[in-house]
Design a protein around this nucleic acid. Sequence first.
DNA 1: ACGCAACGCATCCGCC
DNA 2: GGCGGATGCGTTGCGT
Lengths: 93, 93, 93, 93
Amino acid sequence: MANVGGVSGAQLRQFIERIERLEEEKKAIADDIKDVYAEAKANGFDPKIMRQVIKVRKMETQERQELEALLDVYLHALEGGDAAAAADDDATA
Amino acid sequence: MANVGGVSGAQLRQFIERIERLEEEKKAIADDIKDVYAEAKANGFDPKIMRQVIKVRKMETQERQELEALLDVYLHALEGGDAAAAADDDATA
Amino acid sequence: MANVGGVSGAQLRQFIERIERLEEEKKAIADDIKDVYAEAKANGFDPKIMRQVIKVRKMETQERQELEALLDVYLHALEGGDAAAAADDDATA
Amino acid sequence: MANVGGVSGAQLRQFIERIERLEEEKKAIADDIKDVYAEAKANGFDPKIMRQVIKVRKMETQERQELEALLDVYLHALEGGDAAAAADDDATA
DNA sequence: ACGCAACGCATCCGCC
DNA sequence: GGCGGATGCGTTGCGT
């Protein structure tokens, strides 16, 4: 009985297996990351500091993206030709 | 100054960038997983049940692995020739 | 000043001391466990094997619990009357 | 076969069960601690800060105990009646 | 906004 | 005494 209540069990199985496959890939990458840290450590770098560096760079990236997003909002408002929109944009920011 | 305190800044940069790249991939896969859950939900499947099913299947796999690990440790103990091997007689009954 | 910003310092003290007391008890039990391992080792048992046996038994218990949780979630889904119940047809095969 | 290689499996079983029992108790206490934090939070206290407070107090306790231990060493050295001992005590500290 | 769960980090213990 | 593995803690992200 692969079909109950009009819904395909086989289809569910496909979803489950796709997810399990993806999670395996995710784990594999996480392991790769651990390997890189280990290799770096073997070359005299401190993993703890490296993590800090990566965290900071990530934050900088996020800030930059947010600024770009904000810029886009402004530009689109101008494109729209509605002068008031630009004025409203970040009154709450 | 690409060399500070005897360590190569360029080498560090390589490690950092490899890790950042891998973390992007990891995030991409995590997003894919979310997408699959969303797609399954759109097809009438309950994500909560799916997560539980995946969790159970994962635990089954882990338990097999732990049993294999236990077997390994028994075998090594036998190699060592000491009394600890007695652990297999009824502890798991 | 036992009252700062509208919160009772005395009350906080009670919470802190309760927690500290509980943590002492927890540590005492952890020490007891170490003692048992030491005693077992003195009787010729391998602690490593013992830990693995305990881990396996624990996982067996957890798996039973997860299966029960899965059953619960199935039953609730059936109550809800929606198609998600189809998850039981072959996903675990 | 409760006896292999002259070692009692029943005895091992006793050790295993004692440990499992103790670990249950430990877990129960850990849960109690969580409950206290939750209760404190419900009364408007920040668990994160509470943890900091407890950590600091613990460190202070440890420092005090170390000082007392050091004092004991000095006192015992004096009791020993060996004048040189007191002078040696912490030359390497 | 809250609570839960997974991840990563720090600490500690046993082994070499 | 250093190293690797295991455990507990704290943080972050996800789902409700």
